[in-house]
Structure formats: C-alpha cells, structure tokens
Computed example of a mutant assay.
Amino acid sequence: MELTVVGCSGSVSGPDAAASSYLVRAPFAGGTFALVLDLGPGAMGALYRHLAPEDVGAIALTHLHPDHCLDVCAFYVGARYSPTAPWPRIPLLGPPGTRERLVAAYAVPGEDDPAGRPAGIGAHFAHQDWAPRQQVGPFRIETARVDHPVETYALRVTEDVPEGGSLVYSGDTGPCEALVELATGADLLLAEASFRDVPGNPPGLHLSGRDAAEAAQRAGVAELVLTHVPPWHDRDAVLAEARPHLDAPVSLAEPGASWTIGPR
C-alpha cells in the first residue's frame, strides 16, 4: 500500500500545508481503493493533486476537532454540486457523534432534520462508529482510544493480503500505552509531534518529537514519520529532538511525500 501526505500542519492549516489529511491506497477489486485519514482545513483542495475526490472509497476520522474533520463539509459540497456530482455515498468512519458534528458544522436550514431524518450532509455518508476492528476495502483497521481531550482513536491500517504492510496513525494524543501497543511491530508509525521537548507541556494532549520517537522505539516500528507540527514551531528542531531516541529512520511529513509500506 502507499501512504501520501495530503496535509500535515498541526492544529491549524499552515503557510505551506493543509491541516491533517493522509491518503492510503492499495489494489482492490481490479482497481485501486483510496482511503482518506482525516480531512482538515485546506485538505480538500490539496486532495485534487493526488486523485479525483469522487474516487475516494472511504473517509476515516480519528476525532472531531476541527483541524481533523471540517473539510468533510467541503468534500460534501463537491459531492453535491461539482460537475461530476452526485458522487457515490461512501463510508465515513469516526467516533460516535460524527454525523451530528458535521450537520452542525454545515448548518444548512432544512437540509437535516434534528429529529433524525437527515437529507443533506447527514445523509450523504454511510456513517460507521469506530469498532476495535473493521474491514474497509482492502484494509483491516484496528483502533485504540488514545489520550486526548475528546474521544480520539489511533488507527492501525493493514493491507489485507499475505504479509501485507501495516501503517499506524496516532491521531492526536499525549503519551500513552495504547499507542505503543497498537503500533507494536508496525512498518511505519505516522505520529503527531505538536509539542517541543520542554518542561511544562500539558498532559493528555499531544506528543513532542521525543515522545513520538520513544513510543516508536518501544513499539519496535521500522520507520517513524513525524506530522502535525504547528506552524509556530521549527519543524527541523522537532525532528532533531526525536532522532536520538529511535534506532530506526525518522523523517518529517511533507505535503505530497509518499511511502510504499510493506513488510520488513
């Protein structure tokens, strides 16, 4: 399978990158299946650089903070009003309350009945709450709830073929055992690194580059990619703080960068 960075700026969109969004593709049913992990502000436009968005097979949201989900509204606009509309109704996996969050964000009077009879954005997607394990096209997805102020899930995406590669995406999290356990033996860990390695970082919120590297070391991952660095931090400094703590390759996510993920 192939991982491509659509957006990687942390907490807000950045001067050179959209907010969090990642494209995972693999062969499936005679074609290619495209799974989008998170769709933060600016990511819908950036997605056009990599594929026609109507070809997306599923969207997966780690949590419902705006920097990870709000461009689902933009996706819906394309699905309903672009020249290629209507786009297929696709699965949208997320925490409980995802449909209601998007209906509130899009907020078109009369399109979605609060009594539970959606007709607009609430009806367009086939909503699925996260379960411990699920199949999405060619991918097995395992989840672990991680340490963040809202209900948030790290995702382990494995291509469902013999010796298929495995990608773990941290979502947003503070240091926690759940992430280490989910990432154990993964081919690539895509981990947020929102904090600098300084005293006084609030608990239960985000990782530093060092935190991400230490989690990757404990999990025995083959490669670490740092993402979600906000524009107010020096990205190279975050990378430098991580490198001494992992005996494996570590790099920064960049818009358009891609990795082919397979067994070690």
Results as ranks from 00 to 15, higher is better:
Met1Ser: 14
Thr4His: 01
Thr4Pro: 01
Val6Gln: 02
Ser11Ile: 14
Ser13Trp: 06
Asp16Lys: 11
Ala18Glu: 02
Ala29Asp: 15
Gly30Ser: 02
Gly30Val: 09
Phe33Pro: 00
Leu37Ser: 11
Leu39Pro: 03
Gly40Thr: 02
Gly42Gln: 01
Leu47Trp: 05
Leu47Pro: 04
Tyr48Ser: 11
His50Ser: 01
Ala52Tyr: 06
Asp55Ile: 04
Val56Glu: 00
Val56Cys: 06
Ile59Ser: 02
Ile59Phe: 11
Ala60Arg: 03
Ala60Ile: 13
His63Arg: 11
His65Tyr: 13
His68Cys: 10
His68Gly: 13
Cys69Leu: 05
Leu70His: 06
Ala74His: 14
Ala79Thr: 09
Tyr81Thr: 12
Ser82Gly: 15
Pro83Gln: 11
Pro83Cys: 11
Thr84Asp: 14
Pro86Asn: 10
Arg89Val: 13
Gly97Gln: 04
Glu100Cys: 05
Val103Thr: 12
Tyr106Trp: 15
Val108Arg: 14
Pro109Ile: 02
Glu111Met: 15
Pro114Gln: 07
Ala115Ile: 09
Gly116Met: 01
Pro118Leu: 07
Ile121Pro: 08
His127Ala: 12
Asp129Cys: 09
Trp130His: 15
Pro132Leu: 13
Gln135Met: 12
Ile141Tyr: 02
Ile141Met: 14
Glu142Gly: 01
Leu155Gln: 13
Val157Met: 09
Ser170Val: 08
Gly174Asp: 08
Val180Trp: 07
Glu181Met: 07
Asp187Glu: 10
Ala191Ser: 15
Ala193Asp: 02
Ser194Tyr: 13
Asp197Val: 05
Gly200Trp: 01
Gly200Ala: 05
Pro202Leu: 11
Pro202Gly: 06
Pro203Phe: 03
Pro203Ile: 09
Gly204Ser: 13
Ser208Gly: 09
Ser208Cys: 05
Arg210Glu: 06
Ala212Trp: 03
Ala213Tyr: 04
Ala213Ser: 09
Ala216Trp: 00
Gln217Gly: 11
Arg218Asp: 06
Val221Asn: 03
Glu223Val: 01
Val225Arg: 00
Val225Thr: 10
Leu226Ile: 11
Thr227Ile: 04
Pro231Lys: 07
Trp232Phe: 11
Glu241Met: 02
Ala242Met: 08
Ala242His: 08
Pro244Asn: 01
Leu246Met: 00
Asp247Tyr: 01
Ser251Trp: 02
Gly256Asn: 04
Ala257Gly: 13
Ala257Pro: 04
Trp259Arg: 14
Gly262Tyr: 03
Arg264Asn: 08
